[in-house]
């Protein structure tokens, strides 16, 4: 395949392309899924994170 004789290297190329396709299809199907309301813990975490960043 594509000038490569060793099937194990050809398989690596196929898997690279297939896994990239998998990532793209997954992102496309779930583009607007997973959004959620902000919780108290998120607000508290963000405020503390800002303090940590200030220290740095």
């Amino acid at each position: 395949m594509l000038g490569i004789q060793d099937p194990w290297v050809a398989l690596a190329i196929i898997l690279c392309l297939a896994s990239t396709l998998l990532c793209v299809v997954y992102a496309w199907l779930n583009w607007n899924r997973g959004d959620e309301e902000l919780r108290t813990e998120d607000v508290r975490w963000a405020a503390e994170e800002d303090k940590v960043e200030e220290t740095l």
């Binding site: 990532c23 997954y26 992102a27 779930n30 583009w31 899924r33 997973g34 959004d35």
Partner: peptide, 9 residues
């Protein structure tokens, strides 16, 4: 999680 979903692609 939506941001993570989008970042995957």
């Amino acid at each position: 999680k939506r941001e993570l979903n989008r970042a995957v692609g």
